[in-house]
Amino acid sequence: MKRYEARLSGLGGQGVILAGIILAEAAGIHEGRQVVQTQSYGPESRGSACKCDVIIGDEPVKYPGVYRLNLLVALSQDACDKYARDLVPDGLLIYDPLYVKNLPERPLRACAVKATETAEGLGRKIAANMVALGAVAALAGLVSADSLARAVAARSPRGTAEGNLAAFRAGLAAARELRSAIS
C-alpha cells in the first residue's frame, strides 16, 4: 500500500470528524503508519455538510488532499451524492441506509451498514459514528480491529468508552456478516 485515501462524511453533529481522528490515530499511533488527517465543515456546528479525510501511507504523506478515494463512509445522502464520484473504480462505499436512499449509478462496492439504527438499539444514537468505524474495521482491510478498538477507547471521554466500544463491536459484527454474505 503506497497511499490509501479515506473520507468520512455526513452532517455536523454525527461525529464524522471524531471518527476520522480515531481512524488516523489507529493507523498513525497504534500501527505506526504515516498519516495526515484534514477536515472541513460549514460555519454552523450542527447540520451542515462536513467531511474528514484520512490519508494513510507507507511514506510521509505530503499532499494532504484527495486524489481518488479508496474508502467513503457516507452518513448523509448529500455526502454520498457529492463524494461517491471521487471513489476509485474498486473503492468501497459504506453508507447508512437510514439516510442514504439513492446510490450512485456507477457500479461500486457498496455496503449498507445500519449505523444509526444499531446505535439506537444500544441506547446510544450518538454512537452511530462508532458503529461506522466498526464497519470500516471489518470491510476496509485498512487498519486492524484491535488498533481501532484501542483508538476508540483512548479517545472516549471518561465514562463513555464502554458504550463506544459496544457500538464499535456491533458495527464490526454486522459488517462481518455482511462481508461473508457478499463473498
Binding site: V35, V36, Q37, Q39
Partner: peptide, 9 residues
C-alpha cells in the same frame, strides 16, 4: 487553515 487544522503524528 490547511496547516492549522491538519493533524499529524
Amino acid at each position: 487553515a490547511e496547516i492549522a487544522h491538519m493533524r499529524e503524528v
